[in-house]
Computed example of a mutant assay.
Amino acid sequence: MSLFRKVALAVTALAVLVLTGCSEQAYNMREGVTEISKEVYELHMIAIWVCVVIGVLTFGAMFYSMFAHRKSKNPIPAKFSHSTTVEIIWTVIPFIILIALAVPAVSLLIKMEDSSDSDMTVMVKGWQWKWEYKYIDGDNDPSNDVSFFSNLDEQSLKTRDNSGKNFSGTPIDYENYLLEVDNPLVIPVGQKVRFLVTSEDVIHSFWVPDFSVKKDAIPGFVNEVWTKVDEPGIYRGVCAELCGKDHGFMPIVVHVVEQAEYDAWMASKVEEAKSGPDLNERTMAQLMTEGEAAYNKYCAACHMPNGQGNGPFPSLVGSPIIEGDIEKHIDVVVNGVSGTAMQAFGQQLTEAEIAAIVTYERNAWGNDKGDKAQPQDVYDFKNAGKEE
């Protein structure tokens, strides 16, 4: 057996060993749970093996030439400058390989972009730093549209310094750190779901690896992508676009359930939406308790848990907003502040949450204003001037 064949066989054996071991490991592309994701995985593995063969032949020839035709063995170099036959071969063969890979790749891309004949539609909107999901009713009845925000779960919020410990120094000991949410997206198994992906503020990216779904969420644009999941389960993803300081804290969680369970869940959400906002009056103690929880969930990332602010995010301790009229304070939370990092929370939070946050901020950390906002106050402010 020639030296070239020995080298080629050794490199091939090593590549087979490594790739065979990698195929079942977490650092290889995951196969996923949809027809599309499985086809993507298969095409990925075909491309990998093509690269292995090319690598073996290329580096085998290179190492063989370096060894067999080294100066000490062949002191008189060859006189030829090129070979037309060889140049034709190494031009035609890569062209054939590219065409052979391009045909199935283009076919798969066309299939991935075909969202026609979908069974249901969900609007996915990225916010800094959360996701909004809106189920668009197929009968075009807005009263049946269900929408909600999906935020990083409370347990992860307490430990998002990303140091492996929470703020008190306690080690993180739960499995889905930074990959759990308070309100997951729920879809039925075996149904073709079309996602309309957009953004409210900056560019985000909706990515669920198990579905082979990845689509940019761009302000002012609506992108389409779809999936059909055949296996019930919980599948996780993340925002795959660097979208700001809390980019790493807006995970995606999708619950794929049987049709009957989905129908029951949707019916409860429709009834919840039709019941209207909770405008019940709260005591100061209730508002402070609810406000602390809501503040830590939605506001502490920027203004800090102690209200002292951080960089471009101003302190709330004795600030003009706190010292000013409470209606102006409500206005800032509902509508945000143009030209600053303070975004509008009027669509993101309920009237009860906004009232509790305003009350908490005005009476925490030594502010002690003594006044309070009620959910009805927020509701009246948001609907002021609207026609009945």
Rank of each mutant, 00 (worst) to 15 (best):
H247T: 12
V333N: 01
T289K: 14
E323R: 14
I322H: 01
S37R: 05
N166H: 09
G126C: 08
I36L: 15
V33S: 03
L19Y: 09
K73P: 01
G291L: 10
V52P: 02
G220P: 06
Y262F: 15
A364L: 10
D114P: 05
W129N: 04
E154T: 14
Q374D: 07
D201F: 11
R5P: 00
D201I: 10
A68P: 02
V181P: 00
H303F: 07
K111T: 12
L287E: 02
G237F: 01
E31C: 06
N310E: 10
E35F: 03
K328H: 14
M288P: 07
P77V: 12
F211K: 01
I96G: 03
K328P: 01
P142G: 14
V332G: 00
M1C: 01
K130E: 08
R160N: 12
Y379F: 15
A78Q: 15
I252F: 04
I187W: 00
P209V: 07
E231M: 06
G339E: 10
P312F: 06
G32I: 04
F211V: 04
K73H: 12
Y295W: 07
P305V: 13
M112V: 09
I48R: 10
V378N: 01
V333K: 00
S2F: 06
F206Q: 02
V122G: 03
W90Y: 14
E351T: 04
L196P: 02
S143H: 07
E132A: 08
L9S: 09
V122N: 03
E154Y: 09
L287T: 05
K214E: 07
D246T: 08
R30C: 10
P312W: 05
N367C: 06
K228P: 05
D201Q: 14
L43P: 01
A267G: 02
M250V: 09
G339Q: 10
V52I: 13
V146R: 03
V40S: 03
G138M: 13
T227V: 10
N363G: 09
S107L: 15
V106A: 13
W127S: 06
S156H: 05
V16D: 02
M284H: 10
L101G: 05
R70E: 11
M250D: 12
C243R: 00
